[in-house]
Each structure stands twice: as C-alpha cells, then as structure tokens.
C-alpha cells in the first residue's frame, strides 16, 4: 500500500530563532502567521509562507509556556513562568496589559469572539492550580475554578460557545466545567493512563484531540466527553493536532528529555506521525528533529504544519501536491459482502 508516501516529499523551513527547547507553536486563524515560544522567554512571530522572522515580543522574565491569538490576530496573550500573563499588540509588539498571578501561568486562551480569556495557573509556590476567567476588555475577574492542592490542570479549552471549559488534570482525567458557576458538567475518568500533554479543538468545535505520555492520542466528543478514536503509537506523545481539511491527525513526541542523550536520533522516535483521522491508521512519518517534539500545530487552512522540538528548532512544513492528492485506498462504492467477518 502506498500509505507511507503521504509524507515522502514534504520539505521544511528550519526556523532558527530560539536557543532553548520550544514550548508552543501555533498558527493564527488565517494561517499566515506562526508564533513560537521557548523556555528562554522569547516569543517570535514568523511568516508562514516565507519563513521570515517578522518580530518578537519582549518583556517576560521567564519561560513562556503558552499563548493564544485573538480570532482577528490583532492581539496575543502569553502565559509565562514569571507568574504573569501579558496581552500584546500583534503588529507593534507593544505590551498592552499585564496580569499577575500567584504562581506560574501555564496556559492562556481567548474565548470565541474574544470577549473573555482564561489563564491557567499551576500548583507550585504553595498555591492551588486554577483556571481564572477574565473579561478581555475590562480585565475584571469573571470566575475562578480551583483544584485541590495535589492536583494540577495540564491543558484547557473553551468549548460549547464559551459556556464550558474542558480541562485535563494531572490525574490523567478530563473534566468539563460550567464557566459561570464553576460546576463540573462532565468527566472522563479513564481518559489516559499517563500525563495528558496537549489538547486541541477541531475547527467546528465539536470534538477535540488529546495526546498523552501513555503513547496514545484520543479524540473525545465535547458534550459527553466520550472517546471516539484512539491512535496508538510506540512513543510518549507531547502534542497532537488535527488537519480538518484532509481529515488527518498529526502526532509528535519522543522519549523523555532526560533519556534523550542515551538514544540514537533514529531510535528515539522523534518523528511526526500522520494518522488517518477516521480509520486510525498510520499514513506516514516526517523526520527531522534531533530531540523529542514538544509541540506541533497544523494551520487551520490545512496548508502548513509546524513542529517545535526539545532541540530548539522549529520546522515549518508546507504541504506539497503529493500530500494534497493523497487518498487512502478505499473504493467509494465498496460494500462489505456478507461472508466476510
């Protein structure tokens, strides 16, 4: 079967701007901008089409863990280990506002329509891990969802027209909360067997994908948090993204950073794996990183994908004709005959 050829000719830009492991890479809504952050604290903005460095956002005094664009790409919110979350003007790079938190901010995200945003704090410095929801114009606190001391939020998403927030917890479960009341509205207790490292929403907001150190990625429905698909791999996963146009899943990961020096790049499994979304069959792999892939994202238009590695490199890939033409062997008119079971 020609499945492996899906990735054979994809050629990347290697973006060299960071000196430390990457933490987050995301395209904006239009797919023309790529932002990357790393453990050094620098946030860089690139052109998706040319790989050109457009600018940087200076100000954080520690690692930038995550960020989000507004849907019109005019503003960016960043989450940092310096216990602040900052709002930036995308075009000028000016800092618009700063929110101080009692502990490390690990995630930040705008709601649909950009009227609200939340920040996620972790449970260090004797603090509880929490999701704090703010009004995006007045910066007034709307609600605060707090966990017991021994638990931590690892990832969070806006869901169901901003009425809910779906979050993964450090006990490998997934919980959904009502934004206004903070009540638990749903729970997937056996979601994964190890730390959930990433959650990304589908373009229409009806399902999301999770990646985990337990070597699987899973698709869940946002309403019942029921498991729809499982993608099983042979390496711990750090990130998972959906190409909604082709119906493909992109997975990245690799062995723990502490063990990386003992393994060969080939056997460390530092490849991006491409799976068929509906069939959960592996279609191909893209090599290139020398360390685990920490984060990856497919542009909303399905034209590019970017990976950020522990090795400090960002690889920006433009899908070629071969990828767009790829079709898994499947007869449209195929009808299963009765005698095959």
């Amino acid at each position: 079967m020609s499945a492996k050829s899906v990735s054979s000719t994809i050629r990347p830009f290697q973006l060299r701007g960071h000196a430390r492991p990457l933490t987050h890479v995301r395209f904006n809504n239009d797919g023309d901008l790529l932002m990357t952050t790393c453990k050094e604290g620098t946030s860089l903005l690139w052109s998706s089409y040319t790989g050109e460095l457009l600018g940087s956002y200076e100000g954080h005094g520690g690692v930038v863990w995550s960020f989000d664009f507004t849907s019109d790409s005019r503003k960016i919110i960043t989450a940092s280990g310096d216990m602040t979350s900052r709002l930036w003007d995308t075009e000028t790079g000016k800092e618009l506002h700063m929110i101080s938190a009692p502990s490390t901010v690990s995630d930040a995200s705008f709601s649909v329509g950009n009227k609200m945003f939340f920040i996620v704090t972790v449970n260090n410095m004797n603090q509880h891990s929490s999701i704090v929801i703010y009004d995006a114009t007045s910066f007034e606190l709307i609600n605060r969802i707090e966990l017991p001391r021994d638990l931590r939020f690892t990832c969070a998403l806006w869901a169901d027209c901003n009425t809910r927030i779906i979050a993964s917890l450090s006990d490998h479960t997934i919980v959904s909360y009502n934004v206004r009341t903070g009540e638990t509205t749903g729970q997937a207790t056996t979601a994964h067997k190890d730390t959930i490292t990433d959650m990304q929403m589908s373009h229409d907001g009806t399902y999301f994908i999770t990646s985990s150190r337990d070597m699987t990625a899973k698709i869940f429905d946002i309403h019942e948090l029921s498991q729809i698909r499982v993608y099983t791999t042979d390496s711990p996963l750090n990130s998972a993204s959906i190409d909604n146009i082709k119906g493909h899943i992109f997975l990245g990961g690799g062995q723990d950073a502490s063990q990386v020096t003992t393994t060969h790049a080939r056997s460390g499994k530092f490849e991006t794996r491409i799976y068929h979304e509906a069939l959960a069959e592996e279609l191909g792999r893209v090599r290139g990183h020398f360390g685990p892939i920490n984060t990856l994202h497919v542009s909303p238009q399905g034209t590019h994908f970017a990976t950020g590695g522990e090795d400090g490199f960002v690889r920006l890939h433009e899908f070629d004709q071969n990828y767009h033409d790829f079709k898994i062997e499947f007869d449209e008119n195929f009808e299963p005959s009765a005698d095959v079971n």
Binding site: T206, I228, R229, A278, F330, D331, F334, S337, V340
Partner: peptide, 26 residues
Amino acid sequence: KTELLTRRYNSLVEWNRFREAAIARS
C-alpha cells in the same frame, strides 16, 4: 485485502455517524 477494506468501511461508517450527529448538534 477485502478484510482490510471491510474494516475501513465499518470504521468510516461509524465515524461519519459521529460527525453527522455532532454537526447537527452544532
């Protein structure tokens, strides 16, 4: 090959059923 195609067919039918329901709800 027939087995593989049948497996894919069933998988796809199931997925489409999920997608249709989700889109209707959305």
